[in-house]
Design a protein around this nucleic acid. Structure first.
Lengths: 267, 267
DNA sequence: CGGGAGCTTGATGGACCTCAATCCCTGTGG
DNA sequence: CCACAGGGATTGAGGTCCATCAAGCTCCCG
């Protein structure tokens, strides 16, 4: 029914707002607040200038100042810190719809590096445009800040995982959290999603060795709880997995509905 | 020379701005921006209503909404998350001059609990006052946001520590970071500071068992790098300790000087 | 005197790392 | 076509780091 090859569309996109289907950011924010058509199109315009980025390229280094944020459109990325002894700790995995470097812009640089893990498409957003967005669309702004605080809660949860959970619990928790994040933007099927992370990358994220990641994955497979094979994660027993990981859903996600739009023309 | 018993002062405090000596927040922000007298007194007024809090009391629970922030005046505290299996992971240790719960207020609640570790004094600041401060004193606001982003960078560094550093490196890094934080507000002498944390608390922060904390402390002592005894941390060989921990100073701390105060009456 | 909280030390075991080898798949150049 | 290299996954063997269990210590407080 629907044409999903947007890039090669010949007819005018102006007539049908096809962009909305790919606007993962709008999809994510819609969970928190019901977006108006004006807000949707403003978001679409923010993301109009898209840039291709090859796998393994670094988007932002430590200590950069002249700030811009990036909205990830497609592909996977990670932010990490390197240690003097050669080790690496991955902080987070931005997925499509995530805004990267917003904090560094609003506040100040917290120095870690962003790097793409696959070929990706991003939109660069300069600082003044973000401030304009926050001023002109306050509810949109609060939704964006909601998403940002959610990201920070995930870093804290990550800290808890590495500090006080076993490798098995950690892995289970990680995949469950990722599942919920991807579902939020419609990138996960029921109990299944694609995940192009190597075991070495997983290791750097979970504070384990790549070899032990392999063994833990085997355990999860043998317990018939979760399978990770050829870039596809399949969750077999969600409840048992969540119990094992001590996993709680990230937010109760209250949908903020406008009070019948009192501030705008009332019908 | 100086009278340090402020609480029992009988003469009028109005005549001499003694509050400034105890205003750790102002001291911290002064590292980033040279505060005007108006900003200093505004900060002092923000912190005028002080509240005593007993040791072990919880300031903010998970998921609270009607937000307020707390400026810690004296004493120690910690923020942590509890796990279903009874474990606990401490996220951070606020010290005097730190603002607690600012993020939960500006953004939204990131659910962890704040608890005092010693008897403490805090100032409660309601949301509108913070927004007023940010609007009326933009430079003060940017300094506060700088401090906030510094706090978040510390959480990330904490994550790196637990994920990729050995117990010895972790401990060394922790005490060095704490040393720099305390120096920033004038609460550390040269290579020495008081630190009323039990080994069990340290364990919950560093992702270790209390017993292993003890052994690691012994190692640091036997290597003559650092001593932690009766609530006093003594750094004996800062350079070697920093090399061991892979420690880098938190910020280069650029002092933002006003352009000869063009906005105010020029002398 | 007893009890509790915190610190200290030893012994043992488990979780996880490191080293090493093998296998698969893919791409590359002959 | 094959040879080869390289990245990733898998599995085994052995060793290290750190948790757990257990006991004894000091200090403080009732």
């Amino acid at each position: 029914m629907q044409d999903d090859s947007v890039t090669s569309a010949t007819r005018s996109d102006r007539l049908t707002p096809v962009l909305h289907d790919n606007d993962f950011l709008a999809k994510k924010l819609s969970v928190y607040v019901q977006l108006t058509e004006r807000e949707r199109s403003y978001l679409a315009e923010l993301q109009s200038r898209q840039v291709q980025v090859a796998r393994g390229r670094e988007l932002a280094h430590q200590g950069e100042r002249g700030q811009a944020a990036y909205i990830l459109q497609s592909g996977w990325a990670c932010s990490f810190k390197l240690l003097p002894n050669g080790g690496r700790q991955i902080i987070a995995f931005p997925i499509p719809g995530d805004i990267v470097g917003l904090r560094s812009m609003l506040l100040r640089t917290s120095d870690h590096t962003f790097s793409t893990l696959t070929d990706a498409v991003v939109c660069r957003v300069e600082e003044p445009r973000v401030k304009q967005a926050l001023n002109e669309f306050p509810l949109l702004g609060s939704a964006i800040l909601w998403a940002t605080s959610r990201d920070e809660a995930m870093v804290v949860e990550h800290l808890v995982s590495i500090g006080r959970r076993s490798a098995l619990e950690r892995m289970a928790h990680f995949f469950l959290e990722l599942y919920d994040r991807l579902r939020l933007v419609g990138l996960a099927k029921a109990n299944e999603y694609t995940c192009p992370l190597s075991q070495a990358v997983l290791a750097d994220a979970l504070g384990l060795s790549a070899i032990h990641v392999n063994r833990v994955l085997r355990q999860l497979r043998e317990r018939r709880l979760l399978t990770f094979h050829e870039g596809v994660v399949s969750i077999h027993r969600h409840n048992e997995l969540a119990a094992l990981a001590g996993y709680e859903i990230l937010e109760e996600m209250p949908i903020v509905r406008r009070e019948i739009d009192t501030s705008q023309a009332a019908g």
